[in-house]
Structures are given as structure tokens and as C-alpha cells.
């Protein structure tokens, strides 16, 4: 069963159809499978030049972060600004690491982002499967509720959420930032859209005929099919959770920070050293950049293949 090739959901139609249990048949004429789908003109030097400009634009702020992290505060305050690496990189990294609580921050962020990712993907897959393939009463209303939730600005919940967290005595503790983020309406929507098309109903029925109960169906049929979309959702969720900012800055403090909270502490000091601040920014970004450098191809492929709502 795990050999089932998932059908790519139709990428061009993110419109939700509440009545759609039946898989929307992807337009057969779209050339699929081959990576060279679509029209392929040869890129000329103009194309390469434009792309090169954007490459520089994309990388420059990151590279300059590293450059700035290698200079003293006094050097950074001079014009023209430095374009080459200085000799204070280790000093600054060391100082950011120690004064900014960066070690704890990175560790915390990994736990937080990891926990959020696991639970978001798991619950979104379960709910997405139910919404995509199982008949049940109140389904449409509930799905509408999910869509509506996507509209809720995160700022909205902050006030009562903080009161609840305080009531529970969780201020400045990691569960304060994990629990409120454990599910995502977007994730449910995302998985539903994928499974509606990727999961053949016959497959489910066949499993039923074999006497499998729902949990077994999920384990042996749904999860294998959903895996590519789950991977993409996991990546999106992890990056978002890693960079999550608004809620952690309120629920946590510099004493027990995530990376983003620690960074804001570095940035607004009494005698802040820009070099150290940049070193902190570098430390907070590096883990994700390394992941991107190693798995970049897979991530790009995943985003393009798995779906595209983001």
C-alpha cells in the first residue's frame, strides 16, 4: 500500500469546495510527472543577469550580517561601512552566546518548534483526512469554522491568552508558547486539500473490506499517501514556529527565551554593541540556513510538489 503513488493535487485551484468528496480530476492535459512540464525556452544572458541580481539581493543581507558580526562597534559606526570580514567574529559570537542567553534560546526554540511541528502535522493530517474523505454530520459547518479560524489575527488572542497562561502559572515557561500553537487551521485546510485528491476513495474502501478499523486505515493507507504533504507542512510549520515572535515576546522573557525573544533583548540594550547584535542574529538564523543548504533541493521540490498554499 505504501507504494501508492500520490497524485499531485491540482495546484492551480486553491478554492475550497465544501461539497467535494469526489476527487477533482486534475486536467489530464497538464503535462505532469516530467519536471520539464510547460514551455521551456532556453535562458539567455539577460535572464542570468537578472537572476544574478536577485541572488545578490537575497544573499547580501545575510552575508552582511556575518560581516557585521565580525567587526567592533566602533568600526561599524564608521563610513564607509565594512565590506570585508574583520577579526572579531569569535569574540562577538562568544559574547552574544553568553550575554544573550543564546544557548538556552536555541535549545528552547528547538523544543518549541519541534513540539509544535509534530503536533500540528499529526492533528492536521487526522482532521484533514476526516474532512476530505469521511462522511459525518456537521462537517461543512466545522470546515467553515476552520476556514474562519485562519482569519483570526494572532494578536487577537494575546490578551486573554496571557491571562489564561498567567492563571495556569505558565508565564515564562515553554508550554506557554507551545500549547497555543499546537494546531493550525491552515494545516487542516492544507491537508484536506491535498488528501481530497491524493487519496483514492477506492483505496479506503479496499482497506475497509479487509476489515481494517479507522486507526489502521489511517496508519496503513492515509499516512503513506499523505507523507509528501506532511513533509511540506512540517517544513512550513517548523520555520514559522522557529521565527514566531509576537506571542513569545509576551509570554516569555529574556530569562527563558526563544531565539527571537533573545534577539530583541540583544537589539535594545543599554550599551548595545551592534557587532554582538549581528552575531546573535547570525546564531539565530544559522541553524535554519544550514538546513536549507543541505535540504534546499528537497524543500524547494516539496513546496512546488506538495502544494502551494502558504
Amino acid at each position: 500500500m505504501s507504494t501508492t503513488t500520490p497524485v499531485t493535487p491540482e495546484t492551480t485551484t486553491p478554492v475550497l469546495e465544501l461539497d467535494g468528496d469526489k476527487p477533482r480530476t486534475p486536467p489530464r492535459r497538464a503535462a505532469r510527472g516530467g519536471s520539464g512540464a510547460g514551455r521551456q525556452m532556453q535562458a539567455g544572458w539577460v535572464t542570468y543577469t537578472i537572476l544574478a541580481v536577485f541572488v545578490v539581493g537575497s544573499l547580501f543581507p545575510l552575508v552582511w550580517t556575518a560581516i557585521a558580526a565580525s567587526h567592533s562597534n566602533t568600526r561599524l559606526a564608521q563610513t564607509p561601512p565594512p565590506f570585508t570580514f574583520g577579526d572579531r567574529l569569535w569574540t562577538n559570537l562568544d559574547q552574544a552566546w553568553n550575554t544573550g542567553n543564546m544557548g538556552l534560546a536555541l535549545f528552547n526554540t528547538m523544543i518549541v518548534a519541534g513540539a509544535i511541528t509534530v503536533s500540528t502535522v499529526l492533528f492536521a493530517t487526522l482532521a484533514g483526512f476526516a474532512f476530505a474523505k469521511l462522511p459525518f454530520r456537521g462537517k461543512n459547518i466545522l470546515m467553515l469554522l476552520v476556514i474562519g479560524t485562519m482569519m483570526v489575527p494572532p494578536q487577537l488572542g494575546v490578551v486573554p491568552l496571557f491571562m489564561a497562561i498567567a492563571e495556569l502559572g505558565w508565564t515564562n515557561q515553554l508550554q506557554a508558547v507551545i500549547l497555543p500553537m499546537m494546531v493550525s487551521a491552515f494545516g487542516v485546510f492544507f491537508m484536506r486539500q491535498y488528501l481530497v485528491q491524493a487519496l483514492p476513495t477506492e483505496l479506503l474502501e479496499a482497506a475497509r473490506v479487509d476489515g481494517a478499523n479507522s486507526l489502521r486505515v489511517v496508519w496503513h493507507v492515509v499516512l503513506p499517501v499523505a507523507r509528501p504533504a506532511m513533509a511540506v507542512l512540517a517544513m512550513l510549520t517548523f520555520v514559522t514556529a522557529w521565527n514566531e515572535f509576537f506571542w513569545p515576546i509576551i509570554a516569555l522573557t529574556q530569562q527563558n527565551p526563544t531565539v527571537q525573544v533573545a534577539l530583541t533583548g540583544l537589539g535594545r540594550g543599554y550599551v548595545p554593541d551592534q557587532g554582538v547584535i549581528m552575531a546573535g542574529a547570525l546564531l539565530g538564523t544559522l541553524p535554519l540556513l544550514i538546513v536549507f543548504a543541505i535540504f534546499g533541493k528537497q524543500i524547494v521540490g516539496g513546496i512546488m510538489h506538495g502544494a502551494l498554499k502558504g
Binding site: 543581507p61 545575510l62 530583541t264 542574529a281 535554519l288 540556513l289
Partner: peptide, 8 residues
Amino acid sequence: PYATSVAA
């Protein structure tokens, strides 16, 4: 750039 946090 997508991997870079808002703060950084």
C-alpha cells in the same frame, strides 16, 4: 530569506 526570522 524565507528562513530568516523577522527579528534577524
